[in-house]
Design a protein around this nucleic acid. Structure first.
Lengths: 193, 193
DNA sequence: GTTGTTATTAGCACTTGGTACTAATATCAG
DNA sequence: CTGATATTAGTACCAAGTGCTAATAACAAC
């Protein structure tokens, strides 16, 4: 072969373009010391679109995201059972939009959101805020999984307006997430910040 | 004047392009019922670049803050500065949809999401997952607040694929959130490419 | 009405970064 | 040496423009 095998060049070409989609065929031709036509043949074989299309793709991806801001709304997960100041249960179906594209594992903050929502909901008070929490992601959760989260109120200190809630999330009976939440509540004694 | 004053058309033109930078002069000409040349004169007077430049701008904005371990679109808040495996900074503007209607205080999981996203992003690895975290909501955050979150990688244990990241969020210089995140990463020592 | 000014439209050459296609040449393997 | 594969060259064409000149059109003022 010449300077480099075709295969090797195409491998590097893919990488180069992935790293910097803004590169033109001409620049690539110079870089790999081949003709522009060769680069074009390579792109065709590798099904890599032309510069403008690549840029457009990058741009439209950003644009979609800027518009939608955040998909987390009111309560994450559906509360199916609740006994105020005692315990609560919610269900959250993990979908494609909740997972990392790269590895299909649910982003931690969605599991946290479900737990946090439930911790807030279980407090029988007008105002409940999370003050502190200690959480562990035990096992990866994937799209299609149904996460069942259980909140149990384990302690209450009205002196300091605090309530402690323990959260456990499971998928098919297996624990995937555990957390301890310290919640602030107004009721009990007076003021608020 | 004709159908519309020049001023009014140019005002709408700016708006239209701001809303959708992907529109061509021809489409604009049809929309405003004028010739393509008029649109071009308008763009020139308003100093609005051509379609391709606009798209390139949008694309490069995202690409500037390129993150190896994670496409930027999966991050809550905008990453404004990053030094992989060292530190990162993101900005998140709290809006009405992020707060409790009842008291106007931001829901904890939004702050967590920003912190968690940033903790994932700062890891220079293909796969980064939150394993454990200990967080404290120091002070309530409200709609309109601009939350600046800083992530600092404080420790790394490649034996166990773990990296510890410290997160601090501030609003107007005041700390509102702190957290310690234990992250899992695939690549251990010497496995960097 | 005629004149002046601004606004609009038309047309042409040229640019970038390509596609699509054909044809020639180079390189290597058996 | 021959055939397959790889590479290069060259042409016509496209989108979405820029830059330029020139012709109209619309309206306002005198």
């Amino acid at each position: 072969m010449l300077r480099q095998t075709k295969k090797e060049r195409q491998r590097l070409l893919s990488e180069t373009i992935a790293e910097n989609p803004f590169v033109t065929d001409e620049q690539l031709a110079t870089q790999f010391q081949v003709s522009v036509q060769t680069i074009r043949l390579d792109r065709m074989e590798l099904a890599i679109p032309e510069l403008r299309e690549r840029i457009k793709d990058v741009a439209s991806k950003t644009y979609e995201n800027e518009v939608k801001s955040l998909p987390i709304d009111e309560v994450i997960g559906e509360i199916v059972d609740i006994e105020l100041d005692n315990r609560a249960l919610s269900i959250f179906d993990v979908k494609e939009e909740h997972v990392f594209q790269r590895n299909g594992i649910a982003r931690g903050h969605h599991l946290f959101a479900q737990a946090n929502s439930l911790a807030v909901a279980v407090i029988d008070d007008e105002l409940a805020l999370t003050v502190h929490s200690n959480i562990t992601f035990v096992k990866p959760v994937r799209a299609g999984d149904r996460v069942i989260t259980k909140a149990i109120v384990v302690g209450r200190d009205d002196e300091n307006h605090r309530t402690k809630v323990e959260l456990t999330s499971t998928v098919n009976g297996e624990t995937v997430f555990v957390g301890e939440f310290d919640m602030y509540r107004t009721k009990g004694k007076g003021e608020q910040q």
